[in-house]
Each structure stands twice: as structure tokens, then as C-alpha cells.
Amino acid sequence: MKRGTAQFLWVLVLLLIWEAAARFSGVSPLLLPTVEATVASLFDALFHGTLFYQALFSIGIIALGLFIGVALALVLALLAVQSRLADSLVGTLTALAHPLPGLAILPLLILWFGSGTGVILAIIVHSILWPVLLNLTAGLRQTPAMYLDIGHLLSLSKPRIAVELMLPCAVPDLLAGVQIGWSRGWRALISAEMVFGAVGRLGGVGWYLFKERTFMDAPGLFAGILLVICIGVLVEGVLFSRLERLLLTRFGREETK
């Protein structure tokens, strides 16, 4: 059986267990709604309510965060492999900032900048930047020494060697970093939206979850969680796996000294 098929079957089993527990365990539907009620609530919120736009808002902001985070990581990593000074600075910054959870700096950011989309974006960028940077610099350093020698033989400048010879070698690591960055960023986004309240006109999925909890709308709450899972699975299972197949056939690593 294919891996995907097996996973799909496991999801069905879990849904069956959930449905059975909701129907026959005697637990109040306020605490555990049925699958049916949850799916109905999800469709209702998506197509008759605001959840669709809230999901779009969250996806938009994480996409922007990913773009900024990856761009910053690229600039810093490419500088770090060209200059010792930049390398030690980037190394120090990474060591200090990488272990710091995005939510830990949220109160400070609110204090400084108030609440708004920019602050959520800053937290997402923080969550994405460091793991991408860490992976990318490690990948750049794994460039075979022979390629650098060839770069010298062709009289390439340091920036050209970094961008044209080292960066292609680091694509697998960049991709791994982006995957870690995305999942951290996505978690940070949902959490920040819950802490923050509505940002923008409607707020994102995190705000939706928070509201449903406040109103004790269990099917709505479960629907929100289901949506967060679905978006995560779609991005990782479809988008990233396609990207991986596309890029790794061309930039995959070969056995080289």
C-alpha cells in the first residue's frame, strides 16, 4: 500500500473513533461535537461566515512572512560566507535569537509598537528567519571545495562564488530550513492571533478559534482546529513535497569531495 493511501486510511479510522466517541460516550456535545456537526460548522463558517476570509488573511500574512524571512536569511547567509566579520555577527545573532520563542517577544513588541498586522508579521519573520538562516549557512558551507577551486580558476569574485556556486549546493538545506521555518511561523501566527485579537478587518484563523471558545461554540472551535490542520497538511504534503521533487532532481547532492 502506498504511504499516502495508508495515511488516508488512518485519518478515516481516527474520524470514526471521534464520531463513535461523540455519539456513544455520553460526553456533552459542548465538549465533544460529532464529526458531522464539525464539518457542517466548517462549511457554514467558510461559505456563509467570515472564516474563508480569515483563512486567506492568515495564509497571506504567513506567505509574506516567509518571503521576508527567507529573503533576509539569504542576504545574511550569503554575507556570512564571504566575510569573517559578518560570519561572527550572524553566528552570534543566530545563537541569541534562535532559541527565543516568537511569543516571548510579543509583549515587548506590543509595548513598543502597539497592536497591528506589522507586529504579527515581525513575530512570523522572527520564527522563520533563524531556522532558515541556520540551515542555509550550514548548506553553503558544505559546498565541495573543488567547486570553490573552479570558481578561483574562473577568476570569480567572492559574491559570484557565493551566489552562483555555493547557493545551488545549499538548495536542499534551504528547502529543509523553509519547511521548519514555515511550521514554526504557522504556529506562531495562530498563537499570536489568539493573543492579539482581531488584526486587520476580520482577524485570522487564530482569532476565529479564540472567538469560538469564548462563545462556547464547540463545533466551530473544532472546525477551526480542523482548518488549521488542513492548511498545514496541504502546505507540507502538497506544496512542499512538489517543490522538493522539483528542486531536488536538479539541485540534489552528489557524492563529491
Binding site: M146, H152, S155, V171
Partner: peptide, 29 residues
């Protein structure tokens, strides 16, 4: 220093850049 006047052929098979076709390896250089 180094320059294309005096070029090097390495022992390692993988001295062509793997993300370029054979022809692109040459045109790039």
C-alpha cells in the same frame, strides 16, 4: 593567483556543476 590560462582537471568525477547541463557547464565557464 589562479586564472583560466592554467586550468585544472581534478581526479573527482563530479567537477562539472550538477545543476547545469553539460553544455551549460561550458557556456557558464
Amino acid at each position: 593567483g589562479a586564472g583560466r590560462d592554467v586550468f585544472f582537471i581534478f581526479q573527482d568525477f563530479n567537477q562539472l556543476f550538477p545543476w547545469m547541463t553539460l553544455e551549460q557547464n561550458l557556456t557558464y565557464a
